[in-house]
Write a protein that binds this DNA or RNA. Structure first.
Lengths: 159, 159
DNA sequence: TTCTTATTTGCGTATGATTCCTATTTTGCT
DNA sequence: AGCAAAATAGGAATCATACGCAAATAAGAA
């Protein structure tokens, strides 16, 4: 069992990679979408690194193995994988940047459907200390805690 | 003292609004940039609501008072206000969406200059319970904790 | 107050990210 | 192998954001 040293310093064993690929296959089969060569390589490309690539980077990686793959397919597949719960996004998905004049310590709730946002204060969170592991990486200028889900109004609409 | 009921249910008293405007004036003066009509109205527009508008929304709001304001000025001003520490962004600022295949509970460190990202695990955050106030807003499908700052490599480059 | 000059602004245009359209190709089933 | 539904490639469209420069303006000096 040879551990693979990732760019970000975490190690991913071949068996963990294998597990991810199995989870991928299961999830696609379970949801009834087709298991294409492209989808497999796109997932593999995200799953094998720990450095959180953007769509363009995934595209470049996948092109080495499937030279004719299109950027559009990469995007469509990434959102599909997200819907299936196989990957997440770093920071908020899609849409434009949003601004906040409240500079006191607080958290956000964000509806993934309508974009509704709410501030709230959490004592528990306010007390959190920044882990030393983080300080070793660089300075910390801000901490952002975000809960994502479907707001009750959107839940109703979907029924 | 008449409290203003914000769209998001939080109340902002006129005196709190006054305080924000004072902080705004002080920050601009201290940093030596000019206090223009546009900058004032743009900040006021973000400061007076709790619903985290995007640039376009701020633009529409400001246009009611300064019909000739340009969207470009809104963008330039918002980033300026951010540099001055008067506002933050919800989710990650600028750039493209980035993807993550690690679905186990973890946090992120993100360098605001080069975009370098690192995962790390925090026991403390793993134990974090979702506040009831949040559950009242809707379902929670994911929790995202992100620390932003300058990584040590970028800090060196700036000297 | 008026003058002066470095900043800012507004506009039109450019870029980067993401999505749409649709003819063609593939997958999963028989 | 053959079929129908789903998925793909590729180019064009759209959306968010940034750039360049001439005209306008804030802030300090006179």
């Amino acid at each position: 069992m040879i551990p693979i040293l990732l760019a970000n310093g975490m190690t991913l064993t071949p068996s963990e990679m294998q597990q991810r690929m199995n989870r991928f296959g299961d999830a696609l089969r379970r949801s009834g979408v087709k298991l294409t060569h492209q989808r497999m390589e796109i997932y593999r490309e995200v799953a094998r690194t720990g450095d959180h690539p953007d769509a363009e980077t995934v595209y470049r990686g996948v092109r080495k193995r499937i030279p004719t793959v299109s950027l559009d397919t990469v995007y469509r597949t990434l959102w599909l994988l997200m819907d299936l719960g196989l990957i997440t996004t770093l920071g908020s998905p899609r849409g434009s940047v949003r601004f906040d004049a409240n500079m006191s310590s607080h958290c956000h709730y964000l509806c993934t459907r309508c974009g509704m946002a709410r501030d709230f204060h959490s004592e528990e969170f306010a007390k959190f200390k920044i882990p030393d592991a983080v300080k070793a990486l660089g300075s910390v200028e801000g901490t952002h805690v975000e809960f994502r889900g479907l707001c009750s109004s959107c839940s109703k609409k979907k029924g």
